[in-house]
């Protein structure tokens, strides 16, 4: 008896699996965004807020699904393998162009179609306010005279802000002692406690402590100054041609029809311009930076190349 039932169940399983999914006109159902990180991080929050405003323009709801794990590899692999029908998007952040250089991943940025870039945040170095270095010049002079002595925290080995610090080393010809932490929070805690000399971060990490006067921005790798801190010069103004930061956008699996991409792009662009989202973004201290599919694709390509070069240098 039991055997019969098991066979019956198995047969049902197989029957159900073999019936294919039906595709239909776009968008007939909700669109989901895969976030390759756990809920609560900056990327997650930004896209949750964007999903909330974009739904009305798309005509169907946009839902966020967290697929953390593997330092983002799990989420991107699933995003890549999803049906290229526009119903599954993935949030693309720097690690999409970093991780494939570090470990064997099933994907690179080339396996995705760019849809839209939403946010770009400049990276920066923070020091404690009571630190002996008053200016970027003093900081770099000391670093030059004492290679490997200044400890610079980052949010994880091979992560975005670690590579920014490495690239900055290369651009200025100094050597830092890089200390990896597990996330931006712990690295900021360590500098507040005075356990490291400097920290490489990207907003909103550490901004509150700069406002409170506990930390100061010693090097800002942006094109232009922060609105919030108009007195802080960029490194570019000080003669070092160096701009780097974190970007966050949306991509679709390769092979998604261009008209679907356009529909998605238009809806998310409207969602981005929605005053509710603009206010949310401002509250979160993130820098909205719109790029269309083509420009976004170019950005990812150049970043991919840059990170590949940087990571080769660490391995040496």
């Amino acid at each position: 008896m039991l055997k019969k039932i098991m066979i019956g169940l198995l047969a049902t399983f197989i029957l159900l699996v073999s019936i294919p999914l039906q595709a239909a006109e776009f968008p007939t159902k909700e669109v989901q965004i895969i976030i390759p990180w756990a809920a609560g991080g900056a990327t997650d929050l930004i896209f949750r807020a964007l999903a909330a405003t974009t739904g009305q323009y798309l005509g169907k709801a946009v839902v966020v699904v967290n697929k953390p794990g593997g330092g983002s590899a799990v989420g991107y692999t699933e995003g890549m393998k999803a049906q290229p029908d526009g119903y599954t998007l993935t949030s693309a952040v720097n690690p999409l162009t970093i991780l494939p250089h570090q470990v064997k991943t099933a994907y690179t940025y080339k396996d995705f179609e760019p849809v839209i870039n939403v946010v770009s945040d400049p990276s920066m170095f923070l020091l404690r306010s009571d630190s002996p270095w008053k200016s970027l010049k003093e900081f770099l002079d000391y670093a030059k005279k004492n290679p490997n002595m200044i400890t610079v925290g980052n949010s994880g080995a091979g992560g975005g802000v670690h590579l920014v610090a490495l690239a900055f080393e290369a651009a200025t010809g100094v050597k830092f002692n890089h200390i990896p932490f597990s996330g931006g929070g712990p690295s900021v805690t360590a500098i507040l406690g005075g356990h490291i000399n400097a920290v490489s971060v990207s907003p909103p990490e550490g901004i509150e402590h700069v406002k409170a006067g506990k930390l100061k921005i010693i090097a800002l790798f942006a094109e232009k100054r922060f609105e919030m801190f108009p007195d802080v010069p960029t490194v570019k103004e000080q003669g070092i041609d160096f701009v780097m930061g974190m970007w966050r956008g949306l991509v679709a699996p390769k092979g998604t029809p261009p008209d679907v991409i356009k529909k998605l792009h238009d809806a998310f662009k409207q969602g981005m311009d929605d005053p509710v989202f603009r206010k949310n973004a401002k509250d979160m201290v993130v820098n909205l930076h719109y790029l269309g599919p083509e420009a976004y694709g170019k950005l990812m390509a150049s970043e991919h190349e840059l990170y590949g070069k940087l990571l080769k240098e660490i391995k040496k």
Binding site: P204, H209, K282
Partner: peptide
């Protein structure tokens, strides 16, 4: 994250 999204940045 929830605080940030509501425009409140916890800190000193």
């Amino acid at each position: 994250g929830a605080l940030l999204i509501h425009g409140v940045s916890p800190g000193p």
